[in-house]
């Protein structure tokens, strides 16, 4: 069962609810034009719908692009996750080349932050020892040193997190500007 033009456009529109009205209209206009050209060339609406593929897949690609633009406007962890998720959703190949690097980078960032937080809080441990009556002066100096190092790590992590995020977004954008598909065998 192939869709006709109206069904196709209606479905696509429904999947694109998140986009602004203007952008959605613009997208639908492109596909309307495509139908008009195809019909001129003597194809039926059903044939054209079949060659276009499923509206859901098309919407996924458009939404991935939209989410990446959102991240550029406001870099929040929610926006980043949504963008990564949208790009991963595009296909199996993307799971490999997006999810892998993403997990690795997220691991580095999270462990870096954990280390700095643990270092900064280490004097607290000495205070606890004080209450327990096991206080040693050398521990105090050592933990204050760690605290200082922790602050440095945190500053470094701030810069690193920012640039890693930026780089990764660039990578995602680069990723979706490529046609993915096999070469046709004649």
């Amino acid at each position: 069962m192939q869709m006709n033009k109206e069904q196709f456009l209606k479905q696509l529109e429904a999947f694109l609810k998140r986009l602004s009205l203007e952008e959605r209209q613009d997208i639908l206009q492109d596909y309307k034009e495509y139908y008009a050209m195809g019909i001129e060339k003597g194809k039926s609406e059903q044939e054209i719908s079949a060659s276009l593929g499923h509206p859901k897949q098309i919407a996924k690609e458009l939404l991935a692009s939209y989410h990446l633009d959102m991240v550029e406007q406001t870099t929040s962890s929610g926006n980043i996750l949504r963008a990564v998720w949208a790009v991963i959703g595009l296909g199996f190949f993307n799971i490999l080349i997006v999810l892998g690097p993403f997990c690795a980078l997220a691991g580095v960032v999270i462990s870096g932050w954990l280390a700095s937080v643990a270092f900064i809080l280490s004097p607290l441990g000495v205070l606890i020892n004080l209450f327990l009556g096991q206080f040693r002066m050398s521990d105090m100096f050592f933990s204050l040193g760690l605290c200082g190092i922790g602050i440095f790590i945190a500053m470094g992590m701030l810069v690193a997190t920012k640039s890693l995020t930026k780089g990764f977004i660039r990578y995602l954008k680069f990723n979706i500007t490529f046609v993915k598909g096999g070469v046709k065998h004649e």
Binding site: Y31, S51, L52, G53, Q57, I58, E61, V179, V183, K184
Partner: peptide, 9 residues
């Protein structure tokens, strides 16, 4: 290229 035509837009 083997790609659904809808993905070009």
């Amino acid at each position: 290229i083997e790609i659904s035509e809808g993905s070009v837009y």
